[in-house]
């Protein structure tokens, strides 16, 4: 078992109206930025004990299904960031 840091991103499904993103976009335009659509999501980084990267990813997906995402409106993606404090290959690039 190794400790892995997993990054979980939860965001609204495509086609769902995002009031928070909408007002954020307006405010950015007020400040002079050429901002178009803004989507707001949540990022969780979770330390998990797992036997492999795949197992850690599976656990994170299960966390989304059981708590972090509401299937009616949310999509999610997961990514293993570090294994026992070391950055993973993907992260080094």
């Amino acid at each position: 078992m190794r400790t892995m840091k997993v990054r979980i991103e939860v965001r609204l499904k495509a086609g769902h109206f995002d009031p928070e993103g909408d007002v954020t976009s307006k405010s950015l335009r007020d400040l002079g930025f050429p901002a178009g659509e803004v989507k707001v999501g949540k990022v969780y980084t979770v330390d998990v004990n797992a036997g492999s990267r795949e197992a850690a990813e599976k656990l994170a997906q299960e966390m989304c299904r059981k708590l972090l995402a509401n299937p009616t409106k949310d999509d999610f993606s997961v990514e293993v960031l570090t294994v026992e404090g070391r950055a993973t290959q993907k992260d080094k690039r």
Partner: peptide, 14 residues
């Protein structure tokens, strides 16, 4: 069941 089949999302008015 622990899994929601609907949602109470952010108000449209923000």
């Amino acid at each position: 069941a622990g899994v929601p089949t609907a949602s109470l999302a952010n108000n449209s008015s923000a």
